[in-house]
Computed example of a mutant assay.
Amino acid sequence: MGSTHAASRAAWLGPADAQRDEVAARLRGVPELRFPSSTQGAATPVLRTEIALEPVVGAGVDALGASTGQTRFAVLLSCYARALAATTGQDDFGIGVPVAQRFDARLEQTVGCHIGTVCVRVTPRLLSKDPAMSAVESGRLTREALACQDIGIDEVVRAVDPPRSTRAPFYQTLFVLQDNAPPVLPFDGCTARYHRLPYLDVPSEIQTEVWPAPDGALRLAITSRGAAVAPAFARRLATTLAGLISALPWARTHDPAHRPGRGCPGTRKPPRATTRGTACSPHMVNMHPRLSKRLRREPG
């Protein structure tokens, strides 16, 4: 079984040595992402910032993807990269992307956390102000990273031997599109609703997730380590990301309330943010009403 599994993996993903060399060359010299740390220490271990975007914004994301031949993930990743650049002032950093390590049909029914991580290093084209160009580059970089997904980050660290610090190498943030099917538990005569428990910790200093809703709405959730990330920065990152997604020209053309010359919801005026929260509880972010009809406070 072991030799068969190794042969199947090699046939699916290609020679490991070539992949390792490619990833090492791509990530060599990538600088750490720099952002303000908390001045309150670890009083609140995990902070969560959430913003709900209306279905019209989700439709705009998909329209941009369709017009450029890219996936929803590629469009959203391009917005996240530009949000990080805008809030940190950096134009070179890495973004971690979790991937399912179920490359063989025999792994589909196994129980376990078969997840790896690839690192997408930003480029000038990814940070382009042209949303279409940025989305296309995001798709290219994502495919490039996924082509070498069999090489674990620990292998890349050994190959590159980057300067050591107290922070993780290559990337300090994760980006995840949580487009898995909503859990359903049918009961005769009553209604069940899934209650998502809050995270006790996250695998990176900042973990950013986008949760699509059945009606097409998008929920942005930024979970950060309290000791590593200043709450004000987490809020600023969330509002910047929400503004960039909502400002996509495709989102504006899908908005029935939009009129030429009125601008777009994400850029008409900066969103207001207020913060409340305790350990393992979300922040509250109050967006402009066109960005969100409701203020949500749900466990992670």
Rank of each mutant, 00 (worst) to 15 (best):
M133L: 12
P289S: 09
G277R: 13
C79Y: 08
E50V: 15
R193I: 10
A181D: 07
L177I: 03
L248S: 01
P131W: 14
A242G: 15
V56W: 11
P249K: 05
S8F: 10
R26Y: 06
R9K: 14
C264W: 08
A81R: 09
D154F: 07
R262P: 07
L174F: 15
A228S: 15
P203G: 10
V120Q: 12
T267I: 04
A7L: 05
P131D: 05
R225T: 14
A227T: 12
E144I: 02
R235P: 00
T267E: 15
T191K: 08
T274P: 01
V202A: 13
G29M: 00
P270G: 09
S224K: 02
A16S: 10
S246T: 15
L127W: 07
P169K: 01
G216V: 04
P15F: 04
A135R: 00
F73H: 05
R225M: 15
P260D: 14
L291Y: 11
A105G: 08
R106I: 15
N180T: 11
L76N: 07
S3H: 11
L295P: 02
F73S: 05
H288G: 03
V61W: 12
R268W: 11
E108I: 07
P270L: 01
V56M: 13
E298R: 09
S246F: 10
P265K: 12
Q149V: 01
P182R: 14
E108H: 01
H283M: 04
T240G: 06
V61P: 00
G65F: 01
V136F: 05
V120K: 06
V46F: 08
H5E: 13
A242R: 06
L107R: 08
S246Q: 10
S8T: 11
T274R: 10
T71H: 06
P124S: 11
H114I: 01
P131I: 04
A66H: 04
D150R: 07
N286F: 02
R158I: 05
I151E: 06
D17I: 07
T39P: 01
L27P: 05
L248Q: 03
G65T: 01
T117E: 14
S246L: 09
I115W: 01
F103G: 09
Q101P: 00
T44I: 15
E144D: 12
R262F: 14
T267P: 02
A247R: 00
C113P: 05
